[in-house]
Design a protein around this nucleic acid. Sequence first.
DNA 1: CGAGTTTGACCAGCGC
DNA 2: GCGCTGGTCAAACTCG
Length: 189
Amino acid sequence: MDSFSTLFPCPPSTSSPSPFSFLSMVNNSSHHDFQTHKPSDFLGLMSGTTATAASMEVPASDITNVDSLQAKGLLGSDDGEVKSCGKKKGEKKIRKPRYAFQTRSQVDILDDGYRWRKYGQKAVKNNRFPRSYYRCTHQGCNVKKQVQRLSKDEGIVVTTYEGMHSHQIEKSTDNFEHILSQMQVYASF
DNA sequence: CGAGTTTGACCAGCGC
DNA sequence: GCGCTGGTCAAACTCG
């Protein structure tokens, strides 16, 4: 893997249709990402996830792989013209912007209300925990996410979303909504 | 039986 | 060019 950005695009208490709709919002090509690449810039609080309290925080040492392209200008190459990770042969290499969240949790999978199907798992260099790859199972929805636990701090799970959901949330996530409502985000620009 | 998971193989990009 | 690595595919498998 080469990159991800860490951000929180907007407070979760808006009129969004679903707790995670901000994941979609941020994907509007405008890229209003509240991206940060320093741990101290980003600090959110969550509590009461499915398993334990979770807190968002970004240990710099493990998040250094901030996308160079994004680092150079907050998702500078706006048109999604991101290299690597192309599709199959011949097709243009277009990658959607990705958004990574770090959560402190005992469980790898955050219940964000969408249904995901795992399609791969890979051992990652310099990390004793494997990375899992998930795709949204909703028909026509092409959202992917990667879940990886940090080897330096196995209490931290990094979830990277790619793409935007083209549908409503699929199951009740009052729980998660509650969590989001308690989030605090500190971002500098 | 359908939906989801596991896992090895495959492919493409990148650095040397 | 070659090897390494990340990302995806797909067949086999598990589970409800």
